[in-house]
């Protein structure tokens, strides 16, 4: 299917909405992943799976989530303990209430982000409920994950509600934390514990108090008046 073909896009939208209506069981199972008692959740940890799957989608590496999506590399990528924790904390603060109760998802923060992403994953690709990860989204291919974000970005129910801002921010915030210092950062002491993965990926020389970058003034003009 050509994603730029408007006919195909409309058809796909209709297909998605039909599936959304008929996959009630799957949606209920998604809700259960995020609303189960803590002891049960500890075994599945679907939110962590989802966050890692988002990080692997944006910045693939040599982790299981990247391999599962069929786009991996031979070096660490976005999935690290520090990055996962940071993105979870960011979602918790950025989207305390996505208003998902009407969808049967009475959760907030990172759990809400994960629940919504997985609801769309299951609806778009019901077979994602089976796979190596507790979170259906984490079982998808890279292209299918992209399709889920396209559906989230274009859902006609979201404009006019804060959820529109929230869904659009998911990959953006993942990219930010993946290339920041958080993969090797002591939050209490606010110092590095090693070389951050994102710095290695971008060959970043690191922070400092100055650089020998001064090349003079453009056209020899160092003062302008009038």
């Amino acid at each position: 299917m050509d994603p730029n073909d408007p006919v195909a896009t409309v058809w796909n939208r209709r297909q998605f909405l039909v599936r959304l209506a008929v996959t009630g069981v799957a949606a209920t199972s998604v809700a259960a992943l995020f609303t189960a008692p803590p002891a049960a959740r500890a075994q599945t940890d679907a939110t962590t799976d989802t966050i890692n799957a988002i990080l692997a989608f944006v910045v693939p590496g040599d982790d299981p989530y990247s391999r599962q999506q069929g786009m991996a590399t031979d070096r660490p990528g976005g999935v690290t303990p520090g990055t996962t924790d940071s993105l979870r904390r960011t979602f918790d603060l950025a989207v305390p209430d996505m208003g998902l109760t009407p969808l049967g998802l009475d959760v907030t923060g990172a759990d809400a982000v994960a629940a919504l992403v997985n609801l769309f994953a299951v609806t778009a690709e019901p077979s994602s409920v089976t796979g190596p990860f507790a979170a259906p989204f984490a079982n998808l291919s890279h292209a299918s994950k992209a399709h889920v974000f396209d559906l989230l970005d274009t859902d006609p129910r979201f404009p006019g509600r804060s959820i529109a801002y929230a869904v659009n921010a998911i990959p953006t915030l993942a990219a930010f934390v993946a290339y920041s210092e958080v993969s090797a950062f002591d939050r209490d002491r606010r110092v590095l514990t090693g070389r951050p993965v994102g710095w290695a990926l971008s060959d970043y020389a690191g922070v400092g108090d100055g650089w020998d970058e001064f090349l003079g003034y453009y056209g020899g003009v160092d003062r302008v008046e009038g």
Binding site: P3, N4, T9, V58, V59, A143, A146, H147, F149, D150, D153, N168, P171, T172, L173, A174, A175, F176, V177, A178, Y179, S180, E181, G198, W199, L201, S202, Y204, V207
Partner: peptide
């Protein structure tokens, strides 16, 4: 620095490059 570059490249109203 790189994280803000990544933020900028990851923020769009036109979807994911190559995927709609």
């Amino acid at each position: 620095p790189p994280a803000l570059q990544a933020y900028s490249l990851g923020f769009s109203d036109s979807g994911i490059h190559g995927h709609g």
